[in-house]
């Protein structure tokens, strides 16, 4: 994160301060930071001269722009034809219960983002869940649970409290 502000500042400087560069800037920031924070939106608005409201309007218009931070780990459940037939929907629902979020949302402790996607092209391994670019083949609730536990205990966590309690 400490480099993020720096990098976003530098991204600003690569484009002239004109309205037509709004979308390029938003795309580059999204690539770097995974999402466009309100502060970044403000900076882009100031740099290009586009009123903040209009920058926000453009960012919400295109679905590829995310305005919420993604979790540390990306969990994508494939709902392509083969996976759907093999119970992709049920896997989604179980994950929603397990993580306490709706598909498309990020968990409160910002550890996981759950989303459903179209066919990932690994139909022989259906049902497939992609966790951080790793394809998990023939998933079941139990297998996923094990995987999630490993990720959750990635670092020994303190028991007393804090932002993740």
């Amino acid at each position: 994160m400490e480099q993020l502000n720096e990098e976003i500042e530098q991204i600003m400087q690569t484009y002239p301060g004109k309205p037509e560069y709004l979308i390029f800037l938003l795309q580059d920031i999204q690539d770097k930071a995974g999402y466009i924070s309100p502060e970044s939106m403000q900076l882009v608005s100031e740099h290009t001269g586009v009123p903040l409201t209009q920058a926000y309007s453009v960012a919400t218009f295109y679905q590829s722009f995310r305005l919420e931070p993604r979790g540390d780990h990306d969990i994508r459940v494939c709902l392509g034809t083969a996976c759907h037939l093999k119970g992709g929907q049920r896997i989604t629902e179980e994950l929603e219960r397990r993580l306490n979020v709706q598909a498309g949302e990020t968990t409160e402790d910002q550890r996981f983002t759950l989303s459903t996607v179209n066919c990932v092209g690994a139909c022989a391994l259906a049902p497939v869940v992609v966790v951080d670019d790793e394809y998990e083949p023939h998933v079941t609730a139990k297998k996923l649970d094990r995987k999630l536990k490993i990720l959750e205990h990635e670092f020994d966590e303190n028991k007393e409290g804090g932002p993740d309690a």
Binding site: T106, F155, G162
Partner: peptide, 21 residues
């Protein structure tokens, strides 16, 4: 409210900085 970004939380967990409310 303790609003750290997800990357900051990851660092927090790694460095084991204790937060006591």
């Amino acid at each position: 409210p303790v609003s750290l970004s997800s990357a900051q939380r990851a660092v927090n967990r790694k460095l084991k900085i204790a937060w006591v409310p």
